[in-house]
């Protein structure tokens, strides 16, 4: 039953997302909209010696996309910049610890699509 998606941990992330907000002078940032549903988020990161030192994201969307952004923002901290391209959707689903229905998969993948485009964006 897809109501299982709304696990306590997911709702916690939705109500109190980690790393939510705007940072000044990020090294990289990228914003994307899911044109099907209108969910929109921006990720910003600061990098030192090729390591992601701080992450902020902001935007608006459903509980699943918000939780996905929140969890992913924690996951990529202290990660090598080059490694974020290699994160697989399965890894993110494991972190979310829920079964996501096919119709809601796009809510999970939005965050991943954004961070994968972070370092292809022109340096600020």
């Amino acid at each position: 039953m897809s109501l299982d998606m709304y696990a306590e941990e997911i709702l916690d992330h939705y109500r109190n997302p980690k790393n939510f907000g705007e940072m000044k002078n990020p090294d990289y940032e990228y914003e994307e909209l899911n044109p099907i549903c209108g969910d929109k988020y921006k990720f910003q990161i600061k990098v030192e010696n090729n390591i992601i030192k701080s992450v902020k994201f902001n935007g608006d969307g459903c509980a699943i996309s918000m939780a996905s952004c929140s969890i992913l923002s924690e996951f990529i901290k202290e990660m090598e910049l080059s490694k974020i391209k290699k994160i697989q959707i399965d890894e993110l689903l494991k972190l979310l610890k829920i079964n996501v229905s096919l119709a809601r998969m796009k809510c999970v993948t939005l965050s991943l699509n954004i961070i994968k485009k972070l370092n292809i964006n022109n340096d600020l």
Partner: peptide, 22 residues
């Protein structure tokens, strides 16, 4: 405080089809 997708997703469990989004 509840996004429309979550509303539509939850009531789908009860067999109700509504639209959500923009």
């Amino acid at each position: 405080n509840i996004h429309s997708h979550d509303v539509a997703s939850i009531i789908n469990e009860y067999g109700i089809a509504i639209r959500s989004g923009h």
